[in-house]
Design a protein around this nucleic acid. Structure first.
Lengths: 202, 202
DNA sequence: GTCTATACTGGGATAGAC
DNA sequence: GTCTATCCCAGTATAGAC
């Protein structure tokens, strides 16, 4: 790689890194192109030598994340019984960990989904996509004649929605998290597994 | 009330009504002042004779809703045992109904909460406020020595977040709801009461 | 490829006639 | 109170020198 290209790659990396920081600090929607370039110590114009716009940059960040093995959408799932506490907890923990480790992207995706606005069906579609893992596992349970609270898609979306919302509120809005990750995960596990009634209907 | 004032009130009402329609159609964030005035058949400038801005208008819509007895934050709660299926279902149904009956406001509040951006702690705060009812009931259970999945605030926020998210996705993004209200409410009731394991750990 | 400078735009907001 | 006309700014995006 030539020196020229290396420089360019450096700038691109700097822009991405700056963007990540800004997204966490001000949120995706409130971050202006000029905020990013300023934080990266570059001129505004330079941005457009690397990206066509903010959405394009977000796509790039998403791709980077995927390359690093992290995947917001679908963590691996060798196991297949969500009614097993350890397995359910494991799933929730992985999802939470991915979101926590990729706060900038988590935040940005959430905000951009909202900004797309209602009516397009886009929001619902994205939510359904993101919750594929849960839906699959739930459908699996259903085939095994395990009674579910309702339609697998709906239940999956409910669970996924709860997770996203909590992640945004807790990871984005309160970085100095007042709640430990483990507490959150344990709570969600028990809530989703046994509900408010609890294990023993004592 | 003078004729003059009546005219003004009419315009104000027209603006509010137009805003409600626009919020559902394009979303709160994507709605411009000029969209509202145009939809109301008034000039852009007239808007400012009634409201100082979009947020001000939203506050007015919220107040209207409250006046009509609907309250996004706290439906009445004479009963006090969320582990009773009927009572839990009732709570969820009321919350859902209020959101459905006030789609414009539900949508606008959700979007404006996001737009506030992370970092301010505002989002978390709003979520905690909105879920006061649940938290109170859960705390009540806890005092009665009923074991909960976790901290009442956290559990309440989780439940409320699930509801908000689902409402936005289902009520806002898919108005021609592919899912019946009753199905949603029944599913959530069973999920939250008994969890994925179900009533009988058969 | 990166800079500086600037053109362009959307949309919020106001002035002033009616 | 409502209109028309306009101002004005923030932000995006481009042009062109280096």
């Amino acid at each position: 790689m030539s020196v020229r290209k290396a420089r360019a790659a450096e700038t691109e990396a700097a822009l991405k890194e700056a963007a990540r920081r800004q997204f966490v600090e001000r949120g995706y929607l409130n971050t202006k192109i000029s905020d990013i370039t300023a934080a990266a110590g570059r001129a505004t114009g330079s941005f457009y030598d690397h990206f066509t716009g903010k959405e394009d940059l977000l796509r790039a960040l998403l791709a980077d994340m995927r390359d690093q093995g992290h995947d917001l959408a679908a963590p691996e799932h060798p196991a297949h019984d969500l009614t097993d506490r350890d397995q359910l907890r494991q799933h929730l923990a992985v999802a939470w960990r991915v979101m926590r480790d990729n706060r900038p992207v988590t935040i940005a995706l959430f905000e951009s989904a909202i900004a797309a606005g209602p009516g397009s069906g886009d929001f619902w579609r994205r939510l359904v996509e993101e919750t594929e893992v849960f839906r699959d596992h739930l459908a699996h349970l259903e085939r095994r004649e395990h009674p579910l609270p309702g339609d697998p898609t709906l239940v999956g979306v409910a669970i996924g929605g709860m997770l996203s919302m909590l992640a945004y509120a807790l990871l984005a809005d309160a970085p100095d998290s007042r709640l430990a990750d483990d507490e959150v995960i344990d709570t969600l596990t028990d809530l989703l597994l046994y509900g408010l009634a609890g294990r023993d209907p004592a």
